[in-house]
Design a protein around this nucleic acid. Structure first.
Lengths: 203, 203
DNA sequence: CGTAAATTTGACCATATGGTTAAACTAATA
DNA sequence: TATTAGTTTAACCATATGGTCAAATTTACG
């Protein structure tokens, strides 16, 4: 029973993850989640009580997954340039495996800003900057990157990997018209974006 | 009466625009639109028939507005570099006036890709590239930008201005923690992004 | 094996939602 | 001014939606 219990709960969780990522909180339907999980709709409430609770659980799992994937950027012992390359390679690879995540996360950011505010309250940006600064003092000086310009750089880096997936519906169509396949484009982007950024800061 | 007719229809359209941009198609409610417009809900159906029709009308108006604002990039007689500067200045200014648009558009791209496909069917990318190439042949050669790398560059440019607004909910909070105000940050970004891109292609 | 606990089912519930309808009201016209 | 055309209202409708509930079924345990 414990085994079966876990199975039903997991089935629900997986189906809910897919349905929420596809359609967002507003567009997802409990009946559709149940159908997707192959279970009776009442079980959603038995295991997770409400749609909100189910969504919260899914969102937190996703947030954790993302954090876990990218924390190495701040720990790895390699150069600043190689960290930029690492980030693009890893980030785009991750998004290739989860292409609908940017759309989902951005939609949720706009739909429910309070959720994000809460998420941020546990992040110590000062400490992150200090750690990063200690690791890369010389490179930061060399590239003329101050604590003030760092946010502009970080957001540009994030933008360049996330945006194509978030806007995939329009970008994919536009690329097709030029005979370019989206996945090839993103594969190529791992290198293009890294070299673009490194070139930009190497003025 | 004709004057009053126009007024009611306009009131609905404006309220619907705000409500759809705030909440998207899935999150917006006809009753809320009516409340926002200060009219009886049945009038939404009298003037626009269905929620879908109302949404279509709003979306088309927004798409037209965006196209109109940025077509000058392809017409103006100034240098390639100045076009990049012009684009960032205009684009970010536009988004500062309409900060919720990126979130709305990206959400709709993901919610209803067919709509975007239809929008794209009327765009002649080949012609746009040819026109652009004719205007900037020397600059494109100078910066080593081929027809193949152009999409990567264009998408990077779009990403760098759109993404901060689309992810405003998280970026604003993160910046606040560093004592930076979002609007100041975006004002500064007009220059930062342009010089970043020009520097990147000037390898 | 019988009993208790846990899980599942299917019918039902209360409210929300997009939409309809006919009467009332207002504006236009002869 | 009476009639017609257009607009607005408020009640209503049909279905969707998230959730409830009690009976049935399955699992666990002594």
């Amino acid at each position: 029973m414990a085994g079966n219990n876990k199975l039903t709960e997991e089935k629900i969780f997986e189906a809910a993850t897919e349905e929420f990522v596809d359609k967002g909180m507003d567009g997802a339907r409990m009946q559709d989640i149940a159908t997707r999980a192959g279970i009776n709709k009442a079980l959603l409430h038995y295991y997770f009580r409400t749609k909100d609770h189910l969504f919260d659980a899914v969102f937190e799992m996703i947030a954790r997954k993302i954090m876990k994937r990218f924390s190495p950027v701040f720990d790895e012992n390699f150069s600043f340039e190689d960290k930029i390359r690492f980030f693009f390679r890893e980030h785009i690879s991750f998004l290739q495996e989860n292409p609908k995540l940017p759309g989902f996360i951005l939609n949720e950011i706009n739909r429910n800003p309070a959720r994000i505010k809460k998420l941020l309250s546990s992040v110590d940006f000062e400490n992150i900057w200090n750690t990063f600064y200690k690791q890369h003092k010389e490179d930061l000086l060399k590239y003329n990157i101050s604590k003030e310009t760092m946010p502009q750089l970080m957001i540009s880096i994030a933008a360049m990997s996330v945006f194509p997936f978030a806007a995939r519906g329009i970008i994919e169509g536009a690329l097709m018209k030029s005979g370019i396949e989206f996945n090839d484009f993103m594969e190529e982007r791992k290198k293009f974006a890294a070299e673009f950024v490194i070139s930009a800061i190497s003025k």
